[in-house]
Amino acid sequence: MGINTEREIEANMQIGPTDNAMVRIFVESQGVEVPMDFDPEEAEEIAEEIRAAAAQARAMAEGGGKRR
């Protein structure tokens, strides 16, 4: 399974600060809960990666084709 493999799985995701000054990404799907804690610097790096991926996806959509 890779980043381009589509799946018919629904999941819920929550993102927020914890009492321990961490940023938690909490994913729940089909009874499985995955809490992932990051220090603020790591969370900012992840946010930058998400923004970069969104910009690439937007460019691909506007270009009318898939990029491999």
Rank of each mutant, 00 (worst) to 15 (best):
V32Q: 03
G63F: 04
R24K: 14
G63S: 03
D39A: 12
E8W: 08
M22N: 03
G63P: 08
A11Y: 10
T5S: 05
N12H: 08
N20Q: 13
A11Q: 12
D37F: 14
G65Y: 08
R24L: 03
D39H: 13
A61E: 15
E49V: 15
G2E: 04
E6I: 11
N20R: 09
Q30R: 10
R58E: 13
A52G: 07
V27P: 04
F26T: 12
V23D: 03
V32P: 04
I15V: 11
R68K: 11
V27M: 00
A21E: 00
M1R: 14
E48Q: 13
V32A: 00
A43C: 05
R51H: 00
A57K: 04
P17R: 12
E10R: 09
A47F: 06
R68V: 12
E28W: 06
R58H: 14
I3N: 11
A54F: 12
A54E: 13
E42N: 06
I9V: 14
E6K: 14
R51F: 05
E8P: 12
E48T: 06
V34S: 07
M13L: 14
I46W: 05
E42C: 11
R7I: 15
A55M: 07
Q30C: 09
I9K: 13
A53Q: 03
E62S: 03
I15Y: 00
A61Y: 07
G64T: 05
E41C: 11
A21V: 04
M22A: 14
N20I: 11
A21T: 01
A55R: 04
I15N: 00
D19W: 02
S29A: 11
I50F: 04
I15Q: 10
V34L: 13
P35L: 06
G16S: 01
I25N: 00
D37R: 09
V23T: 09
V32C: 11
P40F: 05
P40Y: 05
A47W: 04
E33D: 15
E10M: 07
A47L: 00
Q30V: 12
A21Y: 06
M22Q: 07
A43N: 03
R68P: 02
